[in-house]
Design a protein around this nucleic acid. Structure first.
Length: 574
RNA sequence: CGGGGUGUAGCGCAGCCUGGUAGCGCACCUGAAUGGGGUUCAGGUGGUCGCCGGUUCAAAUCCGGCCACCCCGACCA
């Protein structure tokens, strides 16, 4: 490809709105163009990378026994109502009406549609296990698209759905996919870690995410260096430090003028935050609820949502708090009635806490559970933190940020039961199929690859997903000798099937080198009067500093070697 | 949805306070010189100033409403 003909221009300056590295570089390299919030056009270079990623995924899915098919984006809303997942997705589901006023949804995922399809085609245990997948556009009306391609509303995703006759089969399918995913990331040159995850709106039991560790990641991961436990904070558990047992003292009211936060309360009364009780107000599917947790611990809303079995959970507004008759800033579960109270299990250890008194500027000392207040539900609803104990081995936990580039779920039978996906076993009995689903966002994978592989000059693509392998970079094209050699070499490399981006522009060396670095093509081949004096070209890898002069004679062979070296480093067997 | 911010040429920005019909840099086009890390000079093309309404002789500028986009939070395979 000649750069002079390539659609898409590099830019010197990027919009101030782009904050993450991958977003900036994608814009600067002229690879993507934003059409609306969370909606992008992909220019040829980005599209090439996406297709490379897609092919790697396809090969691994096929190798694992998957069969590719194509499913509709447009889906009847009724299908979603059947499984109740229209509620689980809530406003995240794009919906529309057709001319007859039938309600439709733009598929955010395809379990419903594919399960229906499987029902029509599978009756017997003989047809199982079944692994079906699609690589298609999906739509989710995210509350807040952000960071370029990392969180968008329209995106390409590979989803594989597994159908098995029992839990054992599901585990096998699940493990197959875990391995296939490892292969995919290895081949893309993208190191990932596997973490336990919450299954969210998708539903189901076991769930794992593949994370690329980067500082800019949206997710926080809690992990143990000792035993290898790792989990998304949405899911992570921890052993909270136990407080010393004390003899319960009598409840005592204290004046706390203008003290409304745990921080100020702690310093005003000179008690550690861990000896206070914090109260947080939520509205769960329209019901006002109170959450009690130790002052130094944060509420994990995913855990809370799961504990409450609700679809929609949000912090209550000031007005709602007031209407519930609660004094924000001095609130407490003591003496509350008619409102559901949920407590974190952290309140069951320790004694003599400071808590609100439910009247302005007043708190209680020596609050003890269950002596002084009742709760309706006790659960682990705390956000695990680095430094706390590992739930598996007790060692200290660490934390890191990451980008989720893959998510696998053991769905079980809840969808097959709701939709009626049953099969007949060898003895004639009917059972629901046991399902799993396994997704990878391609655009996000691309963005994550940039987040993890770049320098201050630009992108550094892995050989396996780079849009082109070679950046042919002649300097001083006005020089007829340079032009002739460059054109000849370009033709030769193309003829040999190498993928070359030919910088045939009459630009200064600085411009060309900077673009080469920005675009991140793995191998740069420079030709100039200087190299031609020695009948050579200069070869430089994007990932390395030094370059070498290589004779023009036989250079195609040398380049082929470099490319296959680059690819074999990323092979599964490595 | 709550908080904050921004909309002026493809991109980055100034002009707005104090109204007088739009400017700078990059990019793009023409020419010349230069040139191994975004080179220099000269000339040139390109803008419904986010949209609608109001005030005014006159609105990018003042007032009102709306919209879009970004950031933080909420939310989110």
């Amino acid at each position: 490809m000649r750069i002079s003909k390539l659609f898409g221009k590099t830019q010197r300056e990027v919009p101030a709105e782009a904050e993450t590295v991958s977003h900036q570089l994608l814009l600067k390299a002229g690879m993507i163009y934003q059409v609306a919030s969370g909606v992008y056009s992909y220019l040829p270079l980005a599209w090439k990378v996406l297709k490379r990623i897609e092919n790697i995924i396809r090969e691994e899915m096929d190798a694992a026994g998957g069969q590719e098919l194509m499913l509709p984006v447009l889906q009847p809303l009724e299908l979603w109502q059947e499984t109740g997942r229209d509620l689980a997705f809530g406003k995240g589901l794009f919906t529309l009406s057709d001319r007859r006023d039938r309600k439709l949804a733009l598929g955010p995922t395809h379990e419903e549609v594919i399960t229906e399809l499987v029902i029509r085609n599978v009756n017997s245990y003989r047809d199982l296990p079944l692994l079906l997948y699609q690589i298609q556009t999906k739509f989710r009306d995210e509350p807040r698209p952000r960071a370029g391609l990392l969180r968008v509303r329209e995106f390409t995703m590979k989803d594989l759905y597994s159908f098995d006759s029992d839990e054992e089969g599901l585990s096998q399918s699940y493990n197959k996919m875990l391995q296939a995913y490892q292969n995919i990331y290895t081949r893309c040159g993208l190191p990932t870690v596997l973490v336990e995850a919450d299954s969210g709106a998708i539903g189901g039991k076991d769930s794992h995410e593949f994370m690329v560790l980067t500082e800019t990641g949206e997710d926080e991961i809690i992990y143990c260096n000792n035993c290898g436990y790792s989990a998304n904070t949405e899911k992570a558990e921890s052993i909270k430090d136990k407080l010393a047992d004390e003899k319960p003292l009598p409840l005592e009211e204290v004046d706390t003028p203008s003290i409304t936060s745990i921080e100020s309360l702690s310093s005003f009364l000179k008690v550690p935050q861990s000896h206070t009780l914090k109260v947080v107000f939520y509205v769960a599917d329209g019901e006002f609820v109170i959450v009690v947790i130790r002052g130094d611990i944060e509420v994990n809303e995913v855990k809370l949502k799961n504990a409450l079995h609700c679809f929609e959970l949000r912090l209550a507004t000031e007005a709602e708090v007031k209407q519930a008759g609660i004094v924000a800033g001095s609130a407490s579960p003591i003496g509350i009635s008619g409102i559901r109270v949920i407590a974190d299990d952290s309140i069951t250890s320790g004694a003599n806490f400071v808590a609100g008194a439910n009247k302005p500027d007043t708190h209680f000392r020596n609050v003890n559970y269950p002596r002084d207040f009742k709760v309706d539900l006790i659960a682990d609803i705390a956000r695990a933190r680095a430094g706390e104990g590992c739930p598996k081995c007790g060692s200290r936990l660490s934390s890191s940020r990451g980008i989720e580039v893959g998510h696998v779920f053991k769905l079980g039978t809840f969808l097959s039961q709701k939709l009626g996906a049953f099969f007949v076993d060898p003895s004639g009995g009917s059972h629901p199929m046991v399902m799993g689903c396994y997704g990878i966002g391609l655009g996000r994978l691309l963005a994550a690859a940039i987040e993890q592989n770049h320098d201050d000059k630009g992108i550094i693509w892995s050989m396996s997903i780079a849009p082109y392998h070679i950046y042919l970079c002649p300097l001083y094209l006005e020089n007829p000798q340079v032009a002739t050699v460059a054109e000849t070499l370009y033709a030769e490399l193309e003829a040999q099937g190498l993928e070359v981006l030919f910088d045939d522009r009459q630009e200064s060396p600085g411009v060309k080198f900077n673009d080469a670095d920005l675009l991140g093509i793995p191998i740069r081949v420079t030709i100039s009067p200087r190299t031609l004096e020695k009948n050579s070209a200069e070869i430089k890898k994007r990932s390395e500093k030094q370059s070498q002069l290589v004779p023009l004679e036989g250079i195609a062979k040398r380049l082929k070697e470099l490319i296959s070296e680059g690819l074999s480093k990323l092979s599964n067997s490595a």
